[in-house]
Every structure is written in C-alpha cells, then in structure tokens.
C-alpha cells in the first residue's frame, strides 16, 4: 500500500483527484489511504507535488 509521509505532505488533495478506487480521502489536513481499496497503481505518487507518497516497490 502507498504510504503517506506526513512530514512532507502539504494536504493539497492532488492524490485524491487521481485515485480511481476512491481509496484516498483528504480529511481536513490529513490524507487517509484505505488499505483495502488501494491497488498499488502509484498514480498518486506521480502527481504529488512534494514527494510525500511512497509506493511499494
């Protein structure tokens, strides 16, 4: 599953915008990824402006 580095995250929501599985929610300032819905497509990793998301290699 993709992991969020909360020390880097700027809570902009770009990652939510590309998640076809609706696995990501931005709840106020906190990006929450639903482990059951994440398909490891890593699209969110690409779009993050701050490199705050780490995909599984």
């Amino acid at each position: 599953m993709v992991k969020v580095n909360y020390k880097r995250c700027g809570y902009c929501g770009a990652c939510v915008g590309v998640c076809e599985n609706l696995a990501i929610n931005l709840i106020e300032h906190i990006v929450v990824i639903d482990e059951k819905k994440c398909s490891d497509c890593n699209l969110c990793v690409i779009v993050c402006p701050l490199n705050a998301l780490e995909g599984e290699k």
């Binding site: 902009c12 939510v16 915008g17 590309v18 076809e20 990501i24 929610n25 969110c44 690409i46 701050l50």
Partner: peptide, 26 residues
Amino acid sequence: DGVESNVAEYAGLKAKKKPLDICSCA
C-alpha cells in the same frame, strides 16, 4: 468539492483524472 472530488464519483459520475491531467503546483 474540488480536485479531490469524491462526491461526484459517489453519485456515479466520472470525475477522476490521470496524473498528467493534473498540474502539480508549489
């Protein structure tokens, strides 16, 4: 609900984007 719209998707509309369809800004 903005770029992170899930509400349109909850209602069955297609609102999700491809990564290069979103301009990442800082």
